[in-house]
């Protein structure tokens, strides 16, 4: 983090390298969310088929 110029705000991790790191982390998180949701959906579909076979 750099020393500030007078009356200039300090930017906290807003440089290009940090921004890319943040975006990469969020992308990984979104992929994890997608995987979790897809797994749940598959589980639900499998359960529905089993329920139908019992009726």
């Amino acid at each position: 983090m750099d020393k500030p110029a007078l009356k200039q705000p300090i930017l906290i991790e807003l440089d290009a390298e940090c921004r890319q790191e943040h975006l990469d982390k969020v992308e990984a998180w979104f992929k994890n969310v997608q995987l979790t949701q897809a797994s749940f959906r598959q589980l639900l579909e499998d359960t529905v088929d089993k329920t139908r076979s019992l009726t």
Binding site: K7, P9, I10, L11, I12, E13, L14
Partner: peptide
């Protein structure tokens, strides 16, 4: 008024 730090999470 002035902005001192920007980009806080």
């Amino acid at each position: 008024v002035e902005a001192v730090m920007v980009g806080l999470s």
